[in-house]
C-alpha cells in the first residue's frame, strides 16, 4: 500500500512539473534536479543515519516508498518551485510554492501515519522547515545557474 501511495504521489509531482509554466531552460532544470536531489538527500541522510531523528521502518516496501518520495517526488517539486518563483504573477508564484510545501509536508505526515517513517525528536513543523530550506536552496542554485552565460565555455 505504501509503495502504491508513494508512486501515485510521485506521479502527481511529475504531472505538476510537466504542467507548470517553465521559466528555466531544459539544461538548467536538469542541473537543478541533480542539485536538489543531492541537497535534500544529504540533509535527510544526516537526520536519518547520524542523528536518527527520522527513522525509516525496516522493510523493503517502506524503503522503496521513502526512496520514491526522496528521489522522485521531492526533486521534481523543488524544480517546479524554482520555476514558479521566477514568475511575475505573485498569485501563481506564492500560491504555487505554498501549495507545494503544504503538499510535501502532508505526504510526509501520511508516510508517518502509514508507519513508513518514524519521527524521534522531530515533528511536522520541522519537516515543513526543511522543505522551505530546500526550496530556498533550490532557488539560490537556480539563480546561480541562470547567471552563467550560455556561451561561456568551460
Amino acid at each position: 500500500m505504501a509503495i502504491a501511495l508513494a508512486t501515485f504521489v510521485a506521479w502527481i509531482a511529475i504531472t505538476v512539473f510537466f504542467l507548470c509554466p517553465k521559466r528555466l531552460t531544459p539544461m538548467e532544470m536538469i542541473f537543478l534536479f541533480f542539485v536538489d536531489t543531492v541537497f535534500e538527500l544529504g540533509m535527510f541522510s544526516v537526520l536519518h543515519v547520524n542523528l536518527q531523528y527520522i527513522e525509516v521502518t525496516p522493510g523493503v516496501a517502506n524503503s522503496i516508498s521513502n526512496l520514491t518520495f526522496r528521489l522522485v517526488e521531492l526533486p521534481f517539486l523543488l524544480v517546479t518551485t524554482s520555476n514558479l518563483l521566477l514568475h511575475l504573477s505573485p498569485i501563481l508564484k506564492w500560491g504555487g510554492v505554498i501549495s507545494i510545501v503544504l503538499f510535501t509536508v502532508i505526504v510526509q505526515q501520511i508516510l508517518v501515519w502509514m508507519g513508513v517513517l518514524n519521527m524521534h525528536h522531530w515533528n511536522v513543523w520541522y519537516s515543513g522547515l526543511t522543505v522551505c530550506v530546500a526550496v530556498v536552496a533550490s532557488r539560490v542554485m537556480a539563480a546561480l545557474i541562470r547567471s552563467v552565460s550560455p556561451n561561456e565555455a568551460v
Binding site: 542541473f31 541533480f34 538527500l41 550560455p150 565555455a153
Partner: peptide, 23 residues
C-alpha cells in the same frame, strides 16, 4: 561545452554517486 552544460555534466556524476549510495 557551455559552462551550464559542464556544470550539469559534473553534477550528473555527483548525483549518480548519491543516488546509488542512498539506494
Amino acid at each position: 561545452f557551455p559552462r551550464k552544460v559542464s556544470w550539469t555534466f559534473f553534477m550528473c556524476g555527483v548525483y549518480s554517486g548519491f543516488f546509488f549510495d542512498h539506494s
